[in-house]
Structures are given as C-alpha cells and as structure tokens.
Amino acid sequence: MSALVFLIPVALGLGLLGLVAFLWSLRSGQFDDLDGAAYRAVFDDDIVDPAEERSREVSKAPGKK
C-alpha cells in the first residue's frame, strides 16, 4: 500500500498537468476558432498567390492519370 503514497500524487499531478495545459490553451485563444483550426493543421505551406495555386492545381491534374 506504500506505493499509493506516490501513485496517487503522480496520478493527480498528471491530471493537473492536463488541466493546466487546457487552461493555458484556452487563455491563449486556441479555442477561438475551432473550425479554422481543424483546417490549419493540413495546410502544407504558405501558398499565397492565386495564380501560383492555380498552376499547382493544373500541374497536379496530369499526375492523376
């Protein structure tokens, strides 16, 4: 039973760590735009030029054949 002496604090500590992380992410605005965040994860890089993007899409198209 002496194992409980640190197992309980460890379990609680880990839980608290999770809670602190959650509160921090909430405070830093990471929950402000849940819809956008879902997509930002899959952006490959900063393609910013519409023309560039169009040419990418075009160059991708033959590859599908």
Partner: peptide, 24 residues
C-alpha cells in the same frame, strides 16, 4: 480553408504586416 491561406498569405506579403489572422 483556402480563403484563410489566400488572405493571410497575401496580406503577410505587404510590408510591415506583423500578423494577419483569419477566424473561420
């Protein structure tokens, strides 16, 4: 999502832009 990229990416190209953040 492409709107986010277009807007943020293009604005960041302007001089002096520190941050441009779209909320979808």
């Amino acid at each position: 999502p492409s709107c986010i990229r277009l807007i943020e990416g293009n604005l960041k190209k302007l001089p002096g832009i520190k941050s441009a953040r779209v909320n979808l």
